[in-house]
Simulated assay, not measured.
Amino acid sequence: MPRYRGTPICDLVDDVNRLKRDGRLDEALALAQGCMDAMVADARAGRGQAMEFYVTQVAIILRRMRRIDDEARLLQGWLASGIPPSRDDHRVGLRKRLAKAHADLDEQSGRDPSQHLAEWRRLVAEEKALKQASGGSQQRSTTGRSAARPGSSRRGGASPLIPPAADLLATEFVAVDFETANRRGGVSACQVALIKFVDGRPVDKLSTHLKPPGGWDHFEFTGLHGISWRDIEHAPSWPMIEADVHRFVDGVPVFAHNASFDRKVWSELDQFFAVRTLPERFYCTYRTATRLMPGLPNYRLPTVVGACAPDYWLNHHDATADAEACGLIVSSFQRQPELA
């Protein structure tokens, strides 16, 4: 994670926003510019992906200061830098801002802005389409009725949270669980655990508390998982473990119990910090259990792991224990003869 004045730039988001709210735009610009420069240096050195959040912040502050010509120069320079985007919709958003800046400069100088306004409108539509496409890929069926049985072919409307047989029977997979500080969203994640299974047994783990960014660090769920500010005060933030997460998952199938929650948390963390770690193959043991284990009184994690691994003692809402329980459920599914 790039640092500015010794602090990870992801931890300075709240400071930039506070300075903007207080009208201290010169200070906000200096801080955002410093963070952006640190990000650019890391990206050019190949030490991380572009966090275009800070490019956008500098552009917003320059616009609020009515320095439209400087905003246009900033955006032109960034878009011509050759640094690949972390997300296509973010890059289109910057191109949209540049088109609007050019249109405003046209108006200021008495030129016809219609060409740049047309480009701005086109990019608004393109950005909207990209965001809808990204969101659509993350939508999940809530009933499970259209989900295919593992091993069967998927038809239109089938839930992508139900694994095909090849992924369910993978000799190597990862189970994951997140805990969040509050109901505001996935960016408040305060604990993550990834457990690697090989041949049905846990062989490795990546487990840590996480420090949410400022504004997301109010602890509402301490009574549920026992985690408080004291536990995460010196914990890493999500970008600080990005490389470790990449190496740990390494392209294998990933499972979570109630994966619609864990996948949403993971996706929101990636989006907020402008990183890419979300696995493509991400499946749900809750939904799979409803297919393979009909007749259970419910499909909550304690119930399903109790049926699949009755000797396992579950410390529910501890991310490490919940992830291991999820992996044991997958291992139990793999032993079902009809899937072999």
Rank of each mutant, 00 (worst) to 15 (best):
residue 62 L to M: 07
residue 164 P to A: 05
residue 75 L to G: 03
residue 95 R to K: 14
residue 112 D to H: 06
residue 86 S to K: 01
residue 212 P to C: 10
residue 193 A to N: 05
residue 273 F to Y: 14
residue 312 Y to W: 12
residue 139 Q to E: 15
residue 21 R to Y: 01
residue 49 Q to K: 00
residue 207 S to T: 07
residue 88 D to Y: 01
residue 171 T to H: 11
residue 214 G to D: 00
residue 223 G to L: 08
residue 186 G to T: 01
residue 22 D to S: 14
residue 336 Q to K: 14
residue 182 N to G: 11
residue 169 L to G: 09
residue 323 A to T: 02
residue 259 A to G: 10
residue 158 A to S: 15
residue 39 M to S: 14
residue 112 D to M: 11
residue 183 R to T: 02
residue 203 V to A: 03
residue 81 S to A: 12
residue 102 H to A: 11
residue 83 I to Q: 09
residue 189 A to F: 03
residue 253 P to R: 11
residue 82 G to K: 08
residue 199 D to K: 14
residue 268 E to Y: 02
residue 172 E to H: 12
residue 72 A to N: 12
residue 254 V to R: 05
residue 235 A to D: 00
residue 169 L to E: 09
residue 161 L to V: 12
residue 263 R to M: 13
residue 23 G to L: 06
residue 274 A to D: 14
residue 225 H to R: 10
residue 203 V to S: 02
residue 7 T to K: 13
residue 109 S to Y: 05
residue 256 A to E: 08
residue 40 V to S: 04
residue 191 Q to L: 01
residue 328 L to R: 15
residue 148 A to I: 06
residue 275 V to Q: 09
residue 176 V to L: 15
residue 19 L to D: 04
residue 52 E to P: 02
residue 207 S to W: 02
residue 20 K to W: 01
residue 254 V to C: 04
residue 126 E to N: 05
residue 144 G to Q: 09
residue 281 R to K: 15
residue 311 D to H: 15
residue 184 R to W: 00
residue 267 S to G: 06
residue 277 T to G: 08
residue 178 F to K: 08
residue 320 T to E: 15
residue 297 P to C: 12
residue 296 L to M: 13
residue 59 A to Q: 05
residue 285 T to M: 04
residue 179 E to C: 10
residue 168 L to I: 13
residue 24 R to C: 06
residue 58 V to Q: 08
residue 103 A to C: 10
residue 86 S to N: 11
residue 308 C to D: 03
residue 333 F to G: 11
residue 164 P to S: 07
residue 310 P to W: 04
residue 175 A to K: 07
residue 331 S to E: 01
residue 23 G to R: 03
residue 16 V to Q: 09
residue 267 S to R: 08
residue 165 A to H: 04
residue 250 D to V: 01
residue 327 G to H: 09
residue 48 G to Y: 00
residue 111 R to G: 10
residue 23 G to C: 10
residue 63 R to G: 13
residue 101 A to M: 07
residue 68 I to N: 09
residue 124 V to H: 06
residue 117 L to E: 10
residue 249 V to I: 15
residue 329 I to T: 10
residue 12 L to Q: 12
